[in-house]
């Protein structure tokens, strides 16, 4: 709306770091703030269990939550622009279906965290590769890609159903079901590097090209007339976004709604210009997942699947925002 308001920018850039520090202080194993700092820096008086607790349990989880929240939200915002459709998120391309199948397959045959992560990542890329491959034969227009995404998702959902069908109802099936609900309960430093690297590179990419994402919201001939090589740019955005989402889903399982709702919240706040929308989505997404994951790991003795929390909070939020959007456009009272 109005060119950058410094206050908004400051709030958006400050909230995630503040929350990040705050969630390190919160957990089922209650800890006093001063103890946290002492143990973090190995000062006198740090208890034996505190340091591993914060450094090995809470810190990697908070990092993963922030990265995944930012990834899903930024990609959601970019994809909504790219497909000129405010109702899509990263799942439109079959990333999640591919990842779900990959993870379920790995849970069935191996069960190691690395295998699950790797297989989910590989199949997520394969799914989107199929979609883009099919789309490429028919001109890579948004419509072709969306239909390709629906078809490939359906295929992988069927394969997932097959795996669930043959899985042992006592051991493998609960593991698959739990994975599909999403969560960061199993996060350890050892499995974090791929996510951190991909998030760093991907988010930097989107911050750099963010103004140009606006051009993707134009009709193809219009963008071409503006001298933009629209197809290479579209494929590049899809490729980088897919790798980011795949890494996120492979690490945390299915976390719905964040990629759909957060861009809407951001758009309501800073407007549709991707120059501000992308950083705002990253900040709000990271903050959202930091808060939700803290609830997921502290509210009850057993983990609350993150996918359930995002749904419980995301659906009412989306309900509200969407009708607000319709009202603005005069399509609802």
């Amino acid at each position: 709306m109005i060119p950058p308001r410094r206050a908004t920018a400051a709030i958006l850039l400050l909230i995630p770091p503040i929350l990040f520090v705050a969630v390190l202080l919160i957990g089922r194993y209650s800890v006093r703030p001063d103890e946290v700092f002492r143990s973090l820096f190995g000062l006198k008086g740090s208890s034996e269990i505190l340091r591993p607790l914060i450094v090995r349990v809470r810190l990697p989880r908070a990092l993963a939550a922030a990265c995944i929240g930012a990834n899903l939200s930024v990609c959601g915002a970019a994809f909504q622009g790219l497909f000129r459709n405010p109702l899509v998120d990263s799942r439109i391309l079959g990333v999640s279906s591919g990842a779900a199948f990959g993870a379920a397959l790995a849970l069935l045959v191996s069960g190691s965290a690395f295998a699950v992560q790797g297989s989910a990542f590989a199949f997520a890329l394969l799914a989107v590769g199929l979609v883009v491959g099919i789309g490429g034969r028919f001109g890579s227009t948004p419509l072709v890609i969306v239909i390709g995404g629906i078809l490939v998702s359906a295929l992988f959902n069927a394969l997932l159903g097959l795996i669930k069908h043959v899985a042992d109802p006592l051991s493998h099936l609960p593991a698959i079901t739990y994975w599909l609900l999403g969560g960061l309960g199993g996060i350890r430093w050892a499995i974090l590097p791929p996510l951190l690297v991909i998030s760093g590179v991907g988010l930097t990419f989107f911050l750099l090209v963010r103004w140009r994402l606006n051009l993707l919201t134009l009709a193809d001939p219009e963008a071409t007339a503006l001298g933009v090589r629209i197809r290479p740019l579209r494929i590049l955005v899809i490729a980088v976004g897919t790798v980011m989402v795949a890494a996120s889903v492979a690490t945390a399982g299915m976390i719905g709604w964040v990629g759909l709702v957060v861009p809407h919240v951001a758009r309501a706040w800073v407007g549709p210009d991707h120059k501000r929308l992308i950083p705002a989505s990253a900040a709000i997404g990271a903050a959202t997942l930091l808060v939700l994951d803290t609830i997921a790991r502290t509210a009850l003795p057993s983990e609350i699947p993150l996918g359930i929390l995002t749904g419980l909070i995301g659906v009412p939020a989306f309900f509200f925002l969407f009708f607000q959007f319709l009202r603005e456009r005069g399509e609802a009272r």
Binding site: N85, N214, G271, P272, D273
Partner: peptide, 8 residues
């Protein structure tokens, strides 16, 4: 689809 300002 998106409500860009005239300037944007």
């Amino acid at each position: 689809v998106f409500s860009y300002t005239v300037g944007e």
